[in-house]
């Protein structure tokens, strides 16, 4: 029986989609780094005047470093809050209230139901009653934690599922470790890959979030780029290319970080299952 697309069908599908996915990126890269008029499109000039000098331009802008610094602070805060809140909660659910698992899972996908633009509408409503909190730029941290919840909880939950959690905890407790020590010295090291992926996902969400910051007029990095490219189109687009490369770098790092240990731990877990 033949497959649905015939012999060369799959190749054509892959080729056409790759063109679709590459063209916009190429166009943006060219616009940022080739210093020629938009109209100069002849082949003979396609490789002329490429320059990366433009990359240094944003540093002349004071808001560039400020907004980047703020975004990194928020990203670190979001990652810390996410891990500090979700790891204990997920462990507790697994050990004490497995009944609650479906409920918690349901709660963690609610940010899909209440998207960023609706969430920020709610924040605008409560703003007059919580100015002391919402006036701070760092008040974005808990909201970004909420937005990342669907990804992060799933990462940590599936990490815990792969462990023999009950056995680990019992062994550690029998050897005299308290709860905190059990968590930090036994469970967290075993959750390494889940923690890494949750962290990267949160950082990606926090660094790229535009909606809430834009409506609340917070000067994080994405609103800065958007405002900057109106003043300095080429430099603005260059920043966008760089931040895209940074995202790809983060995801690349993530897949490298996860590949080796998780492959190993998978082998270990199948081995231990065979032994038991």
């Amino acid at each position: 029986m033949r497959n649905l697309l015939g012999k060369s069908g799959p190749k054509i599908v892959i080729l056409v989609t790759s063109v679709f996915f590459l063209l916009p990126l190429l166009a943006m890269t060219r616009f940022a780094f080739q210093n020629v008029g938009v109209f100069d499109l002849s082949w003979s000039k396609a490789f002329d005047k490429w320059t990366f000098d433009i990359v240094s331009k944003p540093f002349e802008d004071q808001y560039f470093t400020d907004s980047l610094y703020l975004s990194f602070k928020i990203a670190i805060g979001t990652a810390a809050l996410t891990l500090g809140l979700l790891i204990p909660t997920a462990i507790w659910v697994h050990l004490r209230v497995p009944k609650a698992r479906v409920l918690i899972e349901f709660m963690t996908v609610l940010p899909y139901v209440i998207p960023a633009i609706a969430l920020v509408a709610g924040i605008v409503v409560i703003k007059p009653h919580a100015r002391w909190f919402l006036n701070s730029d760092l008040s974005l941290i808990p909201f970004y934690t909420v937005l990342a919840l669907p990804f992060t909880y799933r990462a940590i939950d599936s990490g815990l599922r792969a462990l023999e959690l009950r056995t680990l905890v019992d062994a550690s407790r029998n050897l005299g470790a308290g709860w905190i020590r059990t968590m930090l010295k036994v469970i967290v090291p075993n959750l390494r890959s889940a923690i890494i992926s949750a962290t990267f996902l949160t950082v990606a969400v926090a660094l790229g979030e535009f909606t809430i910051a834009n409506v609340l007029l917070k000067r994080t990095f994405p609103p800065f780029i958007n405002e900057y490219r109106m003043r300095e189109p080429r430099a603005g687009y260059a920043l966008a290319v760089l931040s895209l490369l940074f995202t790809i770098f983060i995801f690349g790092l993530l897949s490298v970080a996860l590949r080796s240990p998780s492959a190993k731990s998978h082998q270990n877990s199948t081995k231990s299952r065979e032994m038991s």
Binding site: P24, A27, A240, L244
Partner: peptide, 11 residues
């Protein structure tokens, strides 16, 4: 988000 929109505006 932004990056995507920028890419398509330049294309």
């Amino acid at each position: 988000g932004l990056t995507l929109a920028f890419a398509f505006v330049s294309l």
